[in-house]
Design a protein around this nucleic acid. Structure first.
Lengths: 123, 123, 123, 123
DNA sequence: GTGGTCTAGACCACA
DNA sequence: GTGGTCTAGACCACA
């Protein structure tokens, strides 16, 4: 479901948040689909339950999922949350591109970076 | 001389490294220009001396400045500063692209954003 | 018969207790009317039988319903249901007031809100 | 600075969030005022550092404070965050009042509840 | 079983 | 010193 890179330096909970967000935004996980429980997901990923729960709490705060104590965690059908996610990522990308341009990086180099990032996933 | 943004999340020592590099690239700090001492710079920036020290060590390691014991630190006259700026802009771009990908933005949309940024400048 | 809001954060058994109480107060469930069995009600609500069981126990404890072994559960003909609704509304109000106080809303502003709500109804 | 009620059933981290929010909204803690460090506050309150940090993370998520690793946590000057806090508390109060009215609670009883909540603080 | 709260304590980068 | 990440594990209410 999600691939964690333990050596990347990116916090594990962040990778979980990104992974779930992505699956929700892309519609791979549909509205009201149940997520793995905090405990079972922790076992599957080989991490501490607290780490998974931290991720779920953040996702809930972002409006991507909702959790019901005693029942489980589910994908929210909150389109605003998804749009907000995309908008802020777009804005950040735009400013990174502008910054890169000012540093003298060419359009083609930037496109190479994009390709590289998308390739990494497919490995 | 340099503006530190405490709330940006970018480590302060990183901001100092980029700041000095930028001033060197723009020619505001010319070859062999003397940098402020660690202590005085720390006071001026309102920052811990350790932080400035760390930044100077990195700048020296990257060949952007050189230090002479007992005299001070000076701008090196090469294009290492430019390389540093490109390197850090690339890294930032890469993480923005990764983040955008996780928010569900496609490769083509990202390329459009790049085009848009380059067009805007030409106006 | 009763609408459960899974996302509201209010425990489901509480929603069932309030729901039955409300129907009793409104006279939709009359004195001695038989309630659905725990099992069938659980199925209808899409809820765990334990949850319905817990709600029935509370309702019985509050004197809102009475149970006859082997026959079922029935609405008691008194004003305990009304008391229960008042009690729970009071509790909810108290916590909303506490929360509002912590958000910096003054006593007078709160009293204005009360006045406003009561006026609105009269229109 | 903040009084924790360990027996109230209200989560400790929630009490910290409410307490700090209130001091920020009321202006008692001004923009950029430094909060106690996670550790020292934990010692003062007699709770685990994780509990304080959870509160600080939520406050940061709400835009009430900002944290800088290595420096500390500070009150944000985010008026939108404060307004949002008040607006949502007001809305919740309004609906609790409406609900209480429907349950048959009088205006005067509600005002008594408000008084009671405000008195509790002063003890 | 399921989410949520909390303690105890280690380790890290940054200041 | 300061925030941040993470493990290990207990206990609770709810389903």
């Amino acid at each position: 479901m999600i691939q964690i890179d333990y050596k990347s330096g990116v916090p594990i909970y962040d990778q979980i948040v990104s992974g779930i967000s992505r699956l929700a935004v892309l519609g791979i996980l549909e509205k009201d689909a149940q997520l793995p429980s905090v405990r079972s997901f922790a076992v599957k990923l080989g991490v501490n339950p607290n780490t998974v729960q931290k991720a779920y709490l953040i996702l809930e705060g972002n409006g991507i999922i909702y959790s019901i104590a005693g029942k489980g965690s589910f994908i929210a059908g909150n389109d605003n949350a998804k749009k907000e996610l995309m908008r802020s990522a777009e804005k950040a990308l735009e400013s990174a591109v502008l910054n890169a341009k000012n540093a003298g990086i060419s359009q083609n180099e930037m496109k190479e970076i994009i390709k590289k990032v998308f390739l990494k996933e497919e490995e």
